[in-house]
Simulated scan of single mutants.
Amino acid sequence: MYFLKKGFALIFGSILLSLGVNLFLVPHEILDGGTVGIGLILNYIWDLNTGLIIIILSIPIFIFAWFHNRNYFYNNLHGMLISSFLIDFLKPVGGLLEVEAIYSSILGGILVGSGIGLMLKFHTSTGGTDFIAQFLCDKTGINVGIYILIIDAFVIICGGLLLTSETFLLSILTILFVGITTSYITR
């Protein structure tokens, strides 16, 4: 039964994450943090596939996981592949909703945070920096959402150098809602 719940969390969490990115963040060029945020930066600048970038950026992290904790490797590989695939697969839904930028950043943050939180609750994730946050949480006992917030803030600051001040501020709002939602779900 746990396996079925975990599979559901993996798929549903990946769908929530992908919808949050494509419906709310991409139309206003808002960033998320972590590998998704880096993938979005490269998407906005060079029109590269966000999901493919996430996979490429996750390779060193998965190599680390292979040598240090194979359980993490196996639990997160599926989440990273499915969520990355769905981010690129659901890219066409990006123009379906007309939502003001500030509400998009909030709703996108809630959906992304819900997807990440749901996956983390069942010890799986999108890999990337979510995996690092989960690993640190297990080692220190500090809530995974706090680690995600710190890592995401770093990505937003770096991305802010390439974006407008409006996009930068909306991205900060987004990662706040991602962190809060993730923390709430993973309690």
Rank of each mutant, 00 (worst) to 15 (best):
S125K: 08
I45T: 09
G20F: 03
I172R: 05
A133D: 13
G108N: 00
K139R: 15
L57D: 07
L42M: 15
E166V: 14
N76C: 04
I61W: 11
L4H: 13
G128H: 14
G145R: 01
L90R: 01
T181R: 02
L169D: 01
F8R: 13
I116H: 10
V112K: 04
L4R: 06
F122N: 13
I59C: 02
I156E: 00
C137A: 12
V144P: 10
A153R: 01
L90D: 03
V155L: 09
F3M: 11
F8T: 13
I61D: 09
G127A: 10
L163R: 08
D32I: 01
F8Y: 15
Y184W: 11
L57F: 11
N75H: 12
F73G: 05
I106W: 03
L111S: 12
A153G: 12
R187N: 04
L52F: 15
T140G: 14
T182F: 00
I53T: 14
R187Q: 14
I116T: 12
N71I: 01
I59T: 11
G13A: 06
S84H: 07
G20E: 08
N143Y: 02
H123D: 15
P60C: 09
L176P: 01
H123N: 14
L57H: 11
L31R: 03
L48K: 14
G37H: 05
T167V: 00
V144D: 10
S104K: 03
G145Y: 04
G13R: 06
W46Q: 12
K121I: 00
I41F: 13
I151L: 15
L111P: 03
F177R: 08
T186P: 04
S104G: 08
F135S: 11
G117E: 08
I116D: 09
G94F: 05
L25F: 12
F73R: 07
S84M: 09
I15H: 13
D88N: 13
Y74E: 07
L161V: 15
V36C: 09
K6R: 15
I87E: 05
